[in-house]
Amino acid sequence: MKSCVAAIFALVALVLLVSHRGEAMTCGRVDVALAPCIGYLTGRDGDTPSPRCCAGVKAVKEMAQTTADKRACCSCVKDAANRHQDLKDAAAQSLPAKCDVQMDIIVSRDVNCDKIN
């Protein structure tokens, strides 16, 4: 009986972990996190990203912990970059550094997300 209860508990924990991870990394969440950066990325808000933008960059980094999550997140960022034709490449590439965030994800229209480790 104890092993059955332990097995059920382990299964429930696994389901919760998988469902939580699935919620953690979605393009919708990435888009919402980076939405405050659009003004900076298009040059409308000057040369410095806002604190809300940088908080979003940090949130994206937290979402992308595994290689699979990083690649998925990269694809979301790439798709978002392609939706904004007025995005400034230099601003996009400097965003993590300006927010003092070390990221494996490059904000770019043409990044190969499959090469992220």
Rank of each mutant, 00 (worst) to 15 (best):
K58N: 09
D104Q: 14
V107S: 03
L14I: 13
M25K: 02
V12S: 14
M103S: 15
L14V: 12
D69K: 02
V12T: 15
C73N: 10
Q93L: 15
I8P: 11
Y40P: 01
T66F: 01
V57W: 13
D69S: 05
L95G: 11
R83L: 07
I105A: 03
K98G: 08
L95I: 14
V5C: 09
Q93V: 11
A33P: 02
I8S: 14
L14M: 11
L34P: 01
K70W: 07
C99G: 11
E62K: 15
P96K: 15
V111R: 12
R21I: 10
Y40L: 01
L87A: 07
C37G: 00
A80F: 07
D45Y: 00
G46A: 03
C53I: 03
V57P: 07
D31Y: 05
D45N: 05
M63Y: 14
T48P: 05
A68N: 14
A59W: 00
V30W: 03
D45P: 02
T26Y: 10
C99S: 12
C76V: 05
S75H: 09
A80R: 07
I38Y: 04
C27E: 05
V60Y: 05
V77I: 10
V18I: 12
N112W: 00
A7V: 02
N112M: 00
P96V: 14
V30F: 03
H20Q: 10
D104K: 14
A72C: 07
L11T: 14
K61L: 02
K61Y: 01
A55C: 02
F9Y: 11
